[in-house]
């Protein structure tokens, strides 16, 4: 049985997908890679936009795409350290 992923791991998975895919990532691609329900993904994307980890871009054909911000890149760089800190003190 798979261990239930915590919030930190889900956010990491979404940001990692955006990093690997590059500038304009479609929500369907994130959905496929992060293995979340549509509703859960929408909630996470809203939270990540609010936290300025990602940006939403609307293309000419009115389709939504996402890309990482500098804060998002910084989060991914420090992810291991953040995860280990939260685990050390049971804060996750």
């Amino acid at each position: 049985m798979n261990k239930k992923r915590d919030k930190l791991e889900i956010i990491h998975s979404i940001l990692k997908t955006l990093q690997e895919k590059g500038e304009h990532t479609k929500p369907t691609h994130i959905l496929y890679k992060s293995n979340l329900s549509h509703q859960m993904l929408t909630e996470y994307l809203t939270e990540l936009i609010k936290g300025k980890f990602i940006e939403e871009i609307t293309t000419n054909d009115r389709k939504k795409h996402y890309r990482l911000t500098e804060k998002g890149f910084s989060y991914l760089k420090d992810y291991d350290s953040i995860k280990a800190f939260l685990e050390s003190y049971g804060l996750n």
């Binding site: 930190l8 936290g51 420090d78 953040i82 800190f85 003190y89 804060l91």
Partner: peptide, 18 residues
């Protein structure tokens, strides 16, 4: 200070109180 830099990155309230 280390906890605060992490709080600035993830904005999780329990990290701030820690």
């Amino acid at each position: 200070a280390f906890a605060f830099t992490i709080y600035r990155k993830i904005e999780q309230s329990n990290v701030k109180t820690f």
